[in-house]
Design a protein around this nucleic acid. Sequence first.
DNA 1: ATAATGACGTCGG
DNA 2: TCCGACGCCATTA
Length: 109
Amino acid sequence: MPDVNALLSDYADQVLSLVDEIPAGKVLTYGDVAELVGQGGPRQVGTVMARYGAASTWWRVVRADGRLLPGSEARAIEHYLREGTPLREAAGRDPRLDMSRARWVREQD
DNA sequence: ATAATGACGTCGG
DNA sequence: TCCGACGCCATTA
């Protein structure tokens, strides 16, 4: 297999670059990434992450409702706890991200 | 050319 | 809060 990066489309490349800039402890929604990249939509970003996201800081790209990535909740939580990403924990229910606080806003940060 | 498919998002009920 | 219905949009089938 040749270098994966060499095969990435410009779009995927832009998405991954941006994801790489998200600071620890913060996150961006699929929609945010799409807007910042200025092309495509949330679903397109999702497609890129599904296909090339494994090697990136995938846990920093989340759904707008703060739900954790289905199938990788455990791994995600480990990272969130480790980098201090704000979570909303309710008794008995699976934790969600506290979006209002966890969302990365380029301006202020 | 047409339909189904997603790591999505928003809006009622 | 939980859920279903729709809208969205590039890619696949």
